[in-house]
């Protein structure tokens, strides 16, 4: 089982990217409906090729720099598996 929080946030530290927001994904809850990918206004997400334990393709972050932290993904997700959050610094640094 991989219960983890897969976050765009780490990229800030790793690559020096500055983002307004980030998303977290609880992969084990995902059922692959695709709502978050389809309705993300910034097209931050895409399906990963990997499966979770139940055999669903889980979304992952492909454009972390575009995430505004608007949390639409979190509102759409019927499985409480993803949410977005604005960064405290608002991406201003």
């Amino acid at each position: 089982m991989f219960h983890h929080f897969y976050q765009a946030h780490f990229l800030i530290k790793r690559g020096g990217l500055v983002t307004k927001g980030r998303v977290s994904i609880v992969a084990e809850r995902c059922k692959s409906c695709g709502f978050c990918i389809e309705f993300c206004p910034s097209h931050v997400l895409a399906f990963s090729s990997a499966f979770n334990a139940k055999g669903y393709h889980v979304p992952h972050v492909v454009h972390p720099e575009k995430c505004s932290g608007c949390d639409l993904c979190g509102m759409y997700c019927p499985d409480f598996a993803i949410y977005g959050k604005k960064n405290a610094d608002g991406g201003k640094k």
Binding site: C33, G74, M75, C77, P78
Partner: peptide, 12 residues
């Protein structure tokens, strides 16, 4: 709830 069921969305 099934994959793609909207009930969870309403709970959000």
């Amino acid at each position: 709830w099934c994959p793609g069921c909207g009930i969870g969305t309403t709970v959000n």
